[in-house]
Amino acid sequence: MTALDSRVAAPPDPAPDAEPRGGRRAAAARHGRDNRTAYLMIAPMVVLLGIFVFWPLANSVYLSTFKISFYQEPEFVGLDFYQYVLESPRFWESIVVGLYYAVLTVPTGIVIALLLASFIKTLSRRLASYMKVTVYLPAVVSTVVASVLFVFMYQDEGVINWMLSLLNHGPVNWLNDPSYALPAVAVPGIWLSFGVTTLILLAGLLDIPENYYESAQLDGAGFFQRLFKITIPLLKNVLLYLLVTGFTLAIQLFELPLIMTNGGPVDATTTPNLYIFNSFRDLTPYATSFSLTASLMLFVVLGAISLVIFKLVNSDKAIDG
């Protein structure tokens, strides 16, 4: 009998009208079996998570206390590298770049997606499926291909500067000016991600019962009242999901700035992951440990940001249940 079974089987204060001891014992044994089955069923996942997530994470934390060299004995340095990362202005600048990128892309993406989803909802079934395929298409385009495409579009003689020239504006140095570079990288970022967001929001919109809108309309509610009193509150959980995943994904952006600007000009597009990657490429033992510790710190920063979003937007059960 397991410890768990014995705890359940020996109640401290049996009530006088308790069922016979044998019945209790049978129930407890059934309970224990259920527990065992449950543990067995989650075991494979726990083992896999242990091997591929928890062990590497614990090992990374352990390794981050060493100056790692592949040719000499690693030197124990305690928490020095955490101090180095926290003191590094370039690390914090990269977090700011990541946050700025997230602020540029996530709310814009959600607004565009919400507008598109509302529009698709009003269409006939055939037109709607055509539109759904159309908006989803950018999501299947490779980020690398999109990056190269946009680099061409941003050239002095590219299509964007050509359109500006029609309005009598000189060529703008999109990717090589510190103040334009990140917004210029954000445009393909929005383009690549709004397809998925639109489909998720559309699913959320279709879930809202039509009679809510009908009764609101009968009561004389206008478009904006319906939007703010019905649509947005009922989409709250979907929006929370999109915000949290959108922010954490946006801060981890990597390929777009790597290919379009290589983090430049003057680090204006060096996102945290790109910064960590570039630190890792340096061949010194210092760089190896520094990039490892910076990744662990980024993990903490991302967790903190998700927490803040959860706090700001309370997740409630939908009114409709």
């Binding site: 592949f70 040719y71 990657f277 890792f280 490429r281 340096d282 061949l283 190896t288």
Partner: peptide
């Protein structure tokens, strides 16, 4: 650089 480091 990253390939060499990974190999090392």
């Amino acid at each position: 650089a990253q390939k060499l480091k990974a190999a090392q």
